[in-house]
Design a protein around this nucleic acid. Structure first.
Length: 851
RNA sequence: GCCGGAGUGGCGGAACUGGCAGACGCGCACGACUCAAAAUCGUGUGAGCUUCGCUCUUGUGGGUUCGAUUCCCACCUCCGGCACCA
C-alpha cells in the first residue's frame, strides 16, 4: 500500500527545512543573471485573506520557476505598517497602534509562511520601524532641498471620518468619497505639504521603458490629463494681464466674453462698485458649495458679470468679464475665454445670459444660420480676420488626421502646421507676441500631509523667527513618540504632545514647534523596493545629504525590479508615486535608471461564492487558513492558479478546489506508488517514443504558460501530462520499468515544483533525488522529440469537416490532397461536382472547394 | 461624453500567426466496487433534429476569405478609469 498524501505533515516538514537551510536567502552572485521579482506587500490588518494568497501564490510560482531557469532570484516581503486602521483600533479598543500593528505582523508572518513561498525573510521591511522611516524622512528632506517639497495653504480634500486630508487620488467616485471609509469629503483651507509630481508630468507620460499593461498606462495617461493648446494673454481695460489657456486658439475670434474662477485673485480688483455686492454674494455661495455640487455636470451654469471688460487681443474687441463656478482655479490659469459657438459649456452660459454667439468654425453643411448648439468638430474658419477660410481640425492632432476624416468633414487631407487653422493661429500668436504654444496637465501636486498619529513624522520645524526649518539630516529620524493619548474625536495626539512639539530651532536656537502632521503612507511604499536591498542600511549611523538611501552594492546587482505584480487599484496612486520617486532619485544621483519596475502584471480579484466582493458583513469570506488546514497549501495554491485567469479573478467555487485535490492525489500515487508487474511484456520502441514525446510536449507547454503568467493552463498541462502517464502505466506496465519512464516521472516532479513546492519536494526526495527540487535546473524540451509523427488531418468540403485522415507528419502536400479527395466521407459531397480548389494547410486540414 | 477591457456549454475556463470551437477541471448522468453509502475507477456530457447521420452554435447585424472566437465596419450589454479640465 502506498502511503497516503498528507499535506499537513509534508508541508510543515519542508517549510522548516527550507528555513533552516536558508534556501531562499538571496545572495548576490555575479556569475548568475539576477531576477528581482516583487509582489505588493500587505498592510498588516491582522489576517491574511484570499486576496493576499491570490496575489502572492502565483507570483511565487513564477519566481520559483525563474530560479530553476538559472536566475538568481530575489523575492522579498514586508509590511506597509503605518496607516489608519491601527489608530482607529487604538481609539476604539484602547490598544496602542504599535502594539496592534506588531502583533498583526507577527500573526501574518506565520500565515504567510504557511503558503510555502520563497520569500527572503532576511530582507523583510517594516515601514513603521525607525530603521525604515528614517529613510522616508531622508527622502522628504532631500525633496525639500531639491525644491520638490513645498508647503502651501490650499483648499484641500478632508475626510471628516478619518479626520485627515487626502490626496486627490484618494478621493473616489462621483460623490467624491474617501477611498478608505466611503465618507464624502469636504473642502478645508489648510497649510499642507505637497510634492511637485507635476514637474515630472511629461516624463511620466512616457512608458517606452516599461512593459506595463495597456490598462495601467491608459489610466495613468488619463490621470495626468495632458492638453495641448495655447496660452493667450488678454488685457483688462485697466491694463492687467489676464492669461488664459485654450485648446482651441483657432476659435479666438469667437470669444465674446471671459470667465474667471470665483477665487481668481484679480476678481476683487476688477469688480466695479455697482457689481460688488452681487459678486461677493456669488463668491460666498460658490465657496460654500461642496465640490460635488460644484463639479456636477447636471447643474445649470451660473455666474455673474463683474462689471469689468477685457480686450480680445486678436481683434481688439471689448468683451465682458464674468465669474462662474464652472471655471476652476486649479486648472490652467483659472480664467477662460468663452467661445459659445465652439464649446458646449460656453454655449449654455451664453444662452442663459444672452451673450452673443457668433459663428467662427463652420461645419461641412452649415446653412449660414446661427447655431442652436455648439459645434466642436473640424470645419472651416469664418469671421476670423486673417484666418477666415482656413480649415481647422478642431480637437484632432495632425497625426490623427486621416483622409477618411478629411472626407467626413469635407476638408483637405494634406494639412500642415502652416495650412491648418489651429496650428497656424498658434504660430501667428507667437509672432504677434500675444500668445504661445502651451501644455496643461490635469495632474496636481501630491498632497502628503496627514493629520494623524500613526505615520511617518514630517521632519520639519516651524520657527517664529526663521520660519520653516528642516530637521538636519544627522538628527534623523524624528521618532514618533509612543507615550500618547488618543482623542475620541480622532484628532492626532501629536498636536497635544508637548515633548514632541516643543523643540529648539536648529538654525537660531530659539524655541520652535515641530510639524505635527505625518506623511501619507504612499510615501513609504514609494521606495520599499530599495529598502529590500538591506532593510537595516546605516542603522545606528548618522545620515547626511550625500547618502544613498539603500545599500548600493546590493542595489547595483538587484535593481531595478524586473517583475512587479499586484492589484490594479494602485494604478494612479502607488504606481505613479513610485515612478515619480525613482525619477527624483535619478535626478538626485542615487540611481541610474528611469523606471522602478520594468514589467508589471496585475492580477484580478477573487470574489465570494455569491459573486460579490468578499467581506465580513456579507458573510461570504473564504478564509485561506481554514482551507490550508483542510486541503493543504499546495492544493489551495493550485486551485488559485487553476480555477481562474490570473488577470481576471472571479467567484470562488468550493467544489472546484476538489479537482485540484484529486489531481495531487493522483500525482502522488503515480510518483510514489508501486510500479505494476510487467510479467513477460516488454515496452516497444514506439511506446517509449510516445512517452518521451508526451514528456517533451509537457515541458514545452508548462514553460510557455509560466512565461505568460498563464497559470491556469500551466496546471491544465500538468494534469494532461499526469493523465497521459497514468494511461501509459495502465496500458503498458512494462513501460514503467524503462529509464524513459523514470525520466518522465522526474520531469513531472520538476514541472510541479514551482506551483506545488511542498509535494514536489517530498516526491523528489522519495524518488531518491538530491535536495532540493527547487535547486534543480528547469527541464528543457527538444522540438524533434516533441514532434508528432502521425497527424490527424481534417478533410473539409466547402469549409465543413466531412472526414478525417491519419497521415505521417511529414506527408507532402500532393499526397495529402489526393488522399483527401479519395476519403470516403467526402465522396458524396463531391459527387457530380468539380473541385475548384484544394487547399492544404500542413498538419491541419485539407479544404476542398467545389461548385 | 472620452479612454481602456471583456462577452465562448449548466459553471470556471481553453484555442499557435486566419485552419477540426469547447483543452483541463467542476457539476451532472449512467456503470463498476459495496449489504449500503462515501471515496475511488470507467463511460458519456454544447444545442436541436426526421439520430448509422444532418443542421445550428463563440453578444447582435453586416463584410473580407476556400475557411473567422481570431481581421474590418456598425451596434448591444457588462466591468474599470476619467469627466464643467477650457
Amino acid at each position: 500500500m502506498t502511503e497516503k498524501y498528507d499535506p499537513s505533515v509534508i508541508e510543515k516538514k519542508w517549510q522548516a527545512r527550507w528555513e533552516a537551510d536558508g534556501l531562499y536567502r538571496a545572495v548576490r552572485d555575479e556569475n548568475k543573471p539576477k531576477h528581482y521579482a516583487m509582489t505588493m506587500y500587505p498592510y498588516p490588518s491582522g489576517d491574511l485573506h484570499m486576496g493576499h494568497w491570490y496575489a502572492m501564490a502565483p507570483s511565487d510560482a513564477r519566481a520559483r520557476w525563474m530560479r530553476m531557469r538559472g536566475y538568481n532570484v530575489l523575492f522579498p516581503m514586508g509590511f506597509d505598517s503605518f496607516g489608519l486602521p491601527a489608530e482607529n483600533a487604538a481609539i476604539k479598543r484602547g490598544i496602542h497602534p504599535k502594539e496592534w500593528t506588531y502583533a498583526n505582523i507577527e500573526r501574518m508572518r506565520k500565515q504567510l509562511r504557511s503558503m510555502g513561498a520563497m520569500f527572503d525573510w532576511s530582507r523583510e521591511c517594516i515601514t513603521s520601524d525607525p530603521s525604515y522611516y528614517k529613510w522616508t524622512q531622508w527622502f522628504f528632506r532631500k525633496f525639500y532641498d531639491m525644491g520638490l517639497a513645498y508647503k502651501k495653504k490650499a483648499p484641500v480634500d478632508f475626510c471628516p471620518t478619518c479626520n485627515t486630508t487626502l490626496a486627490r487620488e484618494q478621493v473616489w467616485g462621483e460623490d467624491r468619497h474617501c477611498e478608505r471609509c466611503g465618507t464624502p469629503v469636504i473642502k478645508k483651507d489648510l497649510e499642507q505639504w505637497f510634492f511637485k509630481i507635476t514637474q515630472y508630468a511629461e516624463e511620466l507620460l512616457d512608458f517606452s521603458k516599461l512593459n506595463w499593461p495597456e490598462r495601467v498606462r491608459a489610466m495613468q495617461t488619463n490621470w495626468i490629463g495632458r492638453s495641448e493648446g495655447a496660452e493667450v494673454v488678454f488685457k483688462t481695460e485697466k491694463g492687467h494681464d489676464l492669461p488664459i489657456f485654450t485648446t482651441r486658439p483657432d476659435t479666438l475670434w469667437g470669444a465674446t466674453f471671459m470667465v474667471l474662477a470665483p477665487e481668481h485673485p484679480l476678481v476683487p480688483e476688477l469688480t466695479t462698485d455697482d457689481r460688488r455686492a452681487e459678486v461677493e454674494a456669488y463668491i460666498e455661495q460658490a465657496t460654500r458649495q461642496t465640490e460635488i455640487d460644484r463639479l456636477s455636470t447636471e447643474k445649470e451654469k451660473t455666474g455673474v458679470f463683474i462689471g469689468a471688460y477685457a480686450i480680445n487681443p486678436v481683434n481688439n474687441e471689448r468683451i465682458p468679464i464674468w465669474i462662474a463656478d464652472y471655471v476652476l482655479m486649479t486648472y490652467g490659469t483659472g480664467a477662460i475665454m468663452a467661445v459659445p459657438c465652439g464649446d458646449e459649456r460656453d454655449f449654455e452660459f451664453a444662452q442663459k445670459y444672452n451673450l452673443p454667439i457668433p459663428v467662427v468654425v463652420a461645419p461641412k453643411d452649415w446653412d449660414g444660420q446661427p447655431f442652436t448648439e455648439a459645434y466642436t468638430g473640424p470645419g472651416v474658419m469664418v469671421n476670423s480676420g486673417p484666418f477666415t477660410g482656413f480649415p481647422t481640425i478642431g480637437k484632432y492632432s495632425l497625426d490623427e488626421w486621416t483622409p477618411e476624416l478629411a472626407e467626413q468633414y469635407g476638408l483637405p487631407a494634406d494639412l500642415t502646421p502652416e495650412t491648418e487653422g489651429r496650428h497656424a493661429v498658434t504660430r501667428w500668436l507667437e509672432e504677434q507676441g500675444i500668445g504661445k504654444f502651451a501644455v496643461t496637465y490635469r495632474l496636481r501636486d501630491w498632497l502628503i500631509s496627514r493629520q494623524r498619529y500613526w505615520g511617518c513624522p514630517i521632519p520639519m520645524i516651524d520657527c517664529p523667527t526663521c520660519g520653516v526649518v528642516p530637521v538636519p539630516y544627522e538628527d534623523l529620524p524624528v521618532l514618533l513618540p509612543e507615550d500618547v493619548e488618543f482623542m475620541p474625536t480622532g484628532e492626532s495626539p501629536l498636536k497635544f504632545h508637548e515633548g514632541f512639539k516643543k523643540v529648539t530651532c536648529p538654525q537660531c536656537g530659539g524655541p520652535a514647534e515641530r510639524e505635527t502632521d505625518t506623511m501619507d503612507t504612499f510615501m513609504c511604499s514609494s521606495w520599499y523596493q530599495y529598502s529590500y536591498m538591506d532593510p537595516h542600511w546605516k542603522d545606528g549611523e548618522k545620515l547626511s545629504a550625500d547618502d544613498i538611501p539603500y545599500n548600493p552594492e546590493e542595489g547595483a546587482y538587484w535593481l531595478p525590479v524586473d517583475q512587479y505584480t499586484g492589484g490594479i487599484e494602485h494604478a494612479t496612486m502607488h504606481l505613479l508615486y513610485t515612478r515619480f520617486f525613482t525619477k527624483a532619485m535619478r535626478d538626485m544621483g542615487v540611481v541610474n535608471f528611469d523606471e522602478p519596475m520594468t514589467s508589471l502584471f496585475n492580477q484580478g480579484i477573487i470574489l465570494g461564492e455569491d459573486r460579490e466582493k468578499m467581506s465580513k458583513s456579507r458573510g461570504n469570506v473564504i478564509a485561506p487558513d481554514d482551507l490550508v488546514q483542510q486541503y493543504g497549501a499546495d492544493t489551495v495554491r493550485g486551485y488559485l492558479m487553476f480555477g481562474f485567469r490570473w488577470d481576471q479573478g472571479g467567484p470562488w467555487d468550493s467544489t472546484g478546489i476538489l479537482g485540484v485535490q484529486r489531481f495531487l492525489e493522483r500525482v502522488w500515487e503515480l510518483v510514489t506508488g508501486p510500479k505494476p508487474e510487467a510479467g513477460s511484456q516488454t515496452a516497444s520502441e514506439s511506446e517509449v517514443r510516445d512517452l518521451r514525446r508526451k514528456q517533451h510536449q509537457a515541458v514545452r507547454r508548462v514553460t510557455n504558460d509560466l512565461e505568460e503568467f498563464s497559470f491556469n493552463t500551466m496546471v491544465a498541462g500538468l494534469m494532461e501530462y499526469t493523465n497521459a502517464l497514468i494511461e501509459f502505466k495502465a496500458k503498458t506496465p512494462a513501460l514503467t520499468h524503462t529509464p524513459a519512464w523514470d525520466e518522465a516521472i522526474r520531469t513531472l516532479v520538476l514541472l510541479m515544483a514551482p506551483g506545488f513546492p511542498h509535494i514536489a519536494e517530498e516526491m523528489w526526495e522519495r524518488l531518491g533525488q538530491p535536495y532540493s527540487v527547487h535547486q534543480q535546473s528547469w527541464p528543457t524540451w527538444d522540438e524533434e522529440i516533441a514532434k508528432e509523427d502521425v497527424i490527424e488531418i481534417a478533410v473539409q468540403v466547402n469549409g465543413k469537416v466531412r472526414d478525417k485522415l491519419t497521415l505521417p507528419a511529414e506527408v507532402d502536400a500532393e499526397t495529402a490532397r489526393s488522399q483527401a479527395l479519395a476519403a470516403p466521407g467526402v465522396q458524396k459531397y463531391l459527387a457530380g461536382k468539380t473541385p475548384v480548389k484544394v487547399i492544404y494547410v500542413p498538419g491541419r486540414l485539407v479544404n476542398i472547394v467545389v461548385k
